[in-house]
Amino acid sequence: MLVRHIINIVSVIAGVLLISAVSFNKLPWWSLLVLVFLWLLVTAYGVANIRSGYFLKSLNSNPDAEGKKIAITFDDGPDQNTLEILKVLDKYDVKGTFFCIGKQVEKHPEILNRIIEAKHIIGNHTFSHDKLIDLYGTDRFTEEIKDADEIIEKISGKRPLLFRPPYGITNPKIARAVKKTGHAVIGWNKRSFDTTIPSEKVILRRVTKNLKSGDVILLHDTKSITVTVLEQLLLFLQRNNFTTVTIDELFSIQAYV
C-alpha cells in the first residue's frame, strides 16, 4: 500500500513536470500519454496480482515457517466434487483450507459440515463470486463478505476470519471493505490454473516446481481434474518430506471468531 502511495505521488510530480515541459515545447505532447500508460500498467498489475500488496496486505506465503510446511487451499466450493477431494485428503491424513462461496454453501450445507467434521478449515470467498464482483462498490462488496460469513455461521456455527478475494483481484474498494469486516486476506504463491489447464502433468508441475517451505498452493475443489492432481501432489509431498498444514497454522492466525 505504501508503494502505491509513493507511485501516485511520483506520478503526480512527473505529470506536473511534463506539463510544464510540454508547455514550453521542451517535450512532445504525447510524452504525457506515456506517463498515463505507465501508471495504468502498474495499477493493472496491482489489481490483478494479489501478491503485489498494491492495495491491501495479503498473506501469500510464509518463508519463516519452520520445517517443510506448506498449505493447500481450495476455492469455489462446496460442490459435489468436494466429496472426492475430501476422500483423497482423508486417505493421506492431510488437512486443507476451503474458501467457500456463500451461495454454494446454501446449495450444499451438508458438504460444508462434512468439511468441518473432517477438521479442515473454512474461509470466506464472498457470497456470489459474481463475474463482475471486482467492479462492486465498497458497501456492496462489504455485504458480499458479510452475507457469506452469515450463511457459513448459520450452517456450521463457525464465523470465518479468513478471506480470499474472487480471482485474486484487489482494488481500493475491496481494501476498504476488508478493513470494515476485519478479515485476514489470504492469497497464494503457487497458482495451479486447474480451472483452465486440461493437463494433469502441467498442473502438477506448476505447483511443485521449486516448492519450498511456507508456500501456499491454490486449487479448486469444483474440478474433477483436481482430484487426480491432488493425489499426485500429496505423494510428491510425502516423498519430499513436506508437511501439509492449514492456513491458520501456517501463519499463526485465528481461523474463526
Rank of each mutant, 00 (worst) to 15 (best):
Arg4Lys: 14
Arg4Gln: 13
Ile6Met: 10
Val10Ser: 14
Val10Asp: 05
Val12Ala: 14
Val22Lys: 12
Val22Asp: 04
Val22Ile: 15
Ser23Trp: 14
Ser23Asn: 12
Lys26Cys: 10
Leu27Phe: 08
Ser31Val: 13
Val34Ile: 15
Leu38Ala: 15
Leu41His: 01
Thr43Ile: 10
Ala44Thr: 14
Tyr45Thr: 13
Ala48Tyr: 10
Ser52Gly: 07
Ser52Lys: 02
Ser58Glu: 01
Leu59Tyr: 14
Leu59Ile: 11
Ala65Phe: 06
Gly67Ser: 13
Ile70Phe: 01
Ile72Asn: 01
Asp76His: 06
Asn81Cys: 01
Thr82Asn: 06
Leu83Met: 07
Leu83Ala: 04
Glu84Lys: 15
Lys87Glu: 09
Asp90Leu: 11
Asp93Glu: 09
Asp93Phe: 00
Thr97Asn: 06
Phe98Pro: 04
Phe98Asn: 11
Lys103Cys: 10
Val105Glu: 03
His108Glu: 00
Ile111Trp: 02
Arg114Trp: 01
Arg114Thr: 11
Ile115Asn: 07
Phe127Arg: 10
Leu135Gln: 13
Asp139His: 12
Asp139Leu: 12
Phe141His: 08
Lys146Gln: 10
Asp149Tyr: 04
Gly157Pro: 07
Gly157Glu: 11
Gly157Leu: 10
Pro160Ile: 07
Phe163Gln: 07
Tyr167Arg: 13
Ile169Cys: 05
Ala175His: 06
Ala177Trp: 00
Lys180Cys: 03
Gly182Gln: 08
Ala184Ile: 11
Val185Gly: 00
Arg191Lys: 13
Ser192Met: 05
Thr196Val: 13
Glu200Leu: 13
Gly214His: 04
Asp215Met: 03
Val216Pro: 03
Val216Ile: 15
Ile217Met: 08
Leu219Cys: 06
Thr222Ser: 09
Thr226Trp: 01
Glu231Trp: 02
Leu237Ala: 03
Thr243Cys: 10
Thr243Pro: 04
Val245Lys: 02
Leu250Lys: 11
